[in-house]
Amino acid sequence: MRKKLFIAAILAVTMSVPLFVGCGANNENKKYVIATDAKYAPFSFEEDGKYKGIDVEVLDAVAKEEGFEYELKPMDFDGIIPGLTSNQLDGAIAGISMTDERKKSLDFSEPYFEAGLSIITNANNTAINGESDLQGKKASLKKGTAGAKFAEDNKDKYGLQLNYFSDSPSMFQAVENGNADFALEDYPVIAYKIKVDTSSKLKIAGNKVTKADYGFAVNKGQNADLLKKFNEGLKKIKDNGKYDEIVKQYLSK
């Protein structure tokens, strides 16, 4: 009887091995949940029921090169970093500036785009022509962005009044209708908006106040494989010309 029980136990262990191997294979073929900013043209925006833009198309090109599947999750920017740090998201490509503060909680890819903050005013505003003219002004800011961080860091220096919004269109609207004196936005975003929106009442005031690189982000110490795939895919699409092809659709280089 003991011999039969021993043989049965051996068979049970042997038969279980393929099951464990199968579980490992499923992890390798994981479908990643990757966030993007829902309203951040020219990097990500909805048109005719589909999302497009530099971020969306770079991600898609990288995924095709590296052979991984993903679910694109458009959302408000202020929810993206909390979504990463709570592991509700596997990754994000959302015009995220690679700041030292963010590197404390996130791991970034190699930079995929160089940007920088610009001051945006109403087209009729002649009082603000650069950073030195911000004293005592009302700022329109998008929550959780590098622009918001810049304004917060300089609030006391310039005596700023800070007003927060969840998306770029609302932030711009506050400047257009006179409820704020200026907004802070990444240069390529505002340059694209002014170029394509002929009804826009906005203009760029002076030079960039900062420069920053955008990076693909994952939670600190998590999803190293996904980060590696993004870096390798990014290099490939830069080498084969696909990256430049994507960017040139939206920005003149």
Rank of each mutant, 00 (worst) to 15 (best):
F182Q: 11
P42G: 09
F182Y: 15
K220T: 13
L184K: 03
G83I: 10
S170W: 00
N231L: 02
S118V: 04
L162S: 13
Y250I: 08
A63I: 12
I80T: 04
P74Q: 02
E71K: 11
K155D: 05
V247I: 15
A139W: 05
A41P: 14
G178F: 06
Y112I: 10
I120H: 02
F113T: 08
Y51C: 02
F77Q: 01
K64R: 15
F20G: 15
I96D: 02
Y70V: 11
N231M: 01
F216Y: 14
G178A: 05
I246N: 11
I246A: 12
S168H: 01
S168N: 06
S86P: 06
K211F: 10
K201G: 11
D90Y: 10
D60F: 05
P18M: 01
A25E: 09
S199K: 15
E131K: 14
F45V: 12
D167I: 07
V189G: 08
F150M: 06
K4S: 12
K137L: 03
Y192S: 03
K203H: 13
A12Y: 01
T36E: 01
G233F: 09
S118C: 05
K155L: 08
I237Y: 08
G67E: 08
K138E: 07
V13W: 01
M15G: 09
L160H: 08
K211S: 14
Q222V: 11
N179S: 15
Y187L: 03
T85A: 00
F45E: 05
K248Y: 00
K235Y: 10
D244H: 00
A217N: 10
N207F: 00
N207A: 09
K4M: 12
A94Q: 03
E71D: 11
V218S: 00
N129F: 03
